[in-house]
Design a protein around this nucleic acid. Sequence first.
DNA 1: GATCGATGCTTAAACGTTTTATCAAAATCT
DNA 2: AGATTTTGATAAAACGTTTAAGCATCGATC
Lengths: 333, 333
Amino acid sequence: MGKKVSIRQVAEHAGVSVATVSLALSGKGRISSDTVRQVKKSAATLGFIPNRSASRLRSGRSLLIGLVVNDIANPFFAELSADVEAHASENGYLSVIANTNDDIEKQASVIETMIGQGVAGFIIVPADTSTPDTFQVIRDHDMPYVLCVRDIGDGKADFIGFDNFTAGVMAAEHLVEKGHRTFAFVGGRLSVDNFRRRLDGVRHALARHGLTLPDNCVREGVPSRAIGLAETGDLLASGAEFTALICYNDFVAVGAYAALNQAGRTIGEDVAVVGFDNVPESESLSPPLTTIELYPRAIGNRSARALIDAVNGSSGPHERVYLAPELISRSST
Amino acid sequence: MGKKVSIRQVAEHAGVSVATVSLALSGKGRISSDTVRQVKKSAATLGFIPNRSASRLRSGRSLLIGLVVNDIANPFFAELSADVEAHASENGYLSVIANTNDDIEKQASVIETMIGQGVAGFIIVPADTSTPDTFQVIRDHDMPYVLCVRDIGDGKADFIGFDNFTAGVMAAEHLVEKGHRTFAFVGGRLSVDNFRRRLDGVRHALARHGLTLPDNCVREGVPSRAIGLAETGDLLASGAEFTALICYNDFVAVGAYAALNQAGRTIGEDVAVVGFDNVPESESLSPPLTTIELYPRAIGNRSARALIDAVNGSSGPHERVYLAPELISRSST
DNA sequence: GATCGATGCTTAAACGTTTTATCAAAATCT
DNA sequence: AGATTTTGATAAAACGTTTAAGCATCGATC
């Protein structure tokens, strides 16, 4: 039956002008508290829902935030997104979300679409090969944006991520402490900044103990179970010597588990394995996987906070936040 | 530098009126192909991004769809959401997403906010205790909506879910086939329709073979690892006899694994376990878990399709789609 | 050569807000 | 009592689109 209730019907119902209704509901002008009460009552009884398209058009203010992620089905990013949404929602914002699948063209296209939809700003996990130039269109529109997780060195935006170097150090230190002297590293791509830093951290920590990670013991690959299985298998077949295996993330570690089992190595005894991310799955592997917790929820929360602050015009310098990872020691090491 | 480029600047740049630009870009009016070309060129060089707030306000048409989910961090719903987003995005729609955490008040509030933001329609996984009345506000606004996964018997909307009864039958049949004669069921709440149907399916299949599921072998609880652990432990302590354990979902099964291991039972030998959902984790458990795949991605995809069809005014009767589950047999049974 | 129908484009109103400028009435001050 | 300020409300313009209606121009038709 299409009951169209706009600010106009509220005005009529309350016996005042539309301007008064707008002012009363937003608490802005000088409206007597009696009138405010009456207007609110009318709005409630009519079931008035303000049309944000109209208000955004007129005022330029928006209650929408754009969340651009490479893969929302990946638990790490799903958790991050969930906390962005939670914090946004607490502050009256709604989240518009889009997957890029690490496709930079898709990323450009969704950013444009979101600008058209009038988002107030962006929270972005940059797709592979993104550069600061990629986000020029956002700056052209004077919108704030926060980059997460992947640091592309964009000085014009806030960055919230975790400290990959320290994460790498933690993994390596833990293994050295457990008495390991020979190491391998599987998964991740050299083109990804997170990968390089993590690897640097590992090498740095090993070097402190006079140990090394030989080049033939580092296997690159898009992080996945399949790559973990294939590369670890290959590594074992190559005859490389190692008693400790560091996996780029927990997915890779799951694949590595399979390869190691096939090769007859006993995880936690013959060979130690450590992963990154602390996905729920890691706890229920057999044996449970030692991993580095990277706190995606905290990243989501901080990002949302940073963006909303920026939207509200807090104009400090851009911040770069690196959250400290934490070692979760389990029986795989 | 705030370069505001609206349809107006495009018009000036192309030397035509705003109306012509609008018509040319939407391909609607009678505009010569020369003019269309020129307008498109001007729009491109100026980097024109149409303001959807304005167009929605004027035309009433929207390219936003509202996705309301109880827990987006849960892999099942994350996958569902990912496919909704993918299909929406393919059709030029953007997804606005919100978590309800199964809180019906929060659900009502996000639905209202989304209506205010001008979504074209909704895809909803109804929060616990939702009834058709819950969605009256959507119908009042003449908007289409599709309900997913949880069937609340709303005849005024499409429903896309999976066939819980058959899923229960499959689990039970599989176990009977493997020679089991005594059964238990852990996790899920009687207040949830999906739970009841799944359990009915199990009982129905068992009855066909002259077998039963005694009441003292059914343990309710909000599905989670913790409940799986606690209830299975309790069940074992109670001295209940069973060689086959059906878990409400894979999370519960993970908890059950721990309880069974603690009790010294060998999974896949002394006792068989089957779960539902086929979360990635289930494959890497030890032993790998037999489970029922429920195809969340297909549900997401179908839902998006149904909604977009409805938005485009295809006016058939509402459809109820139950996707067939599939048994994934692994070594836990 | 007047009439007609396409064709191609424009004018202007409308969508539902917000906000500035304005105004009347009431309260306060000389 | 008259001047001034404060209070409470309103009228109207504006935001960037879409779209119905209108208006030339042109070619074809009688």
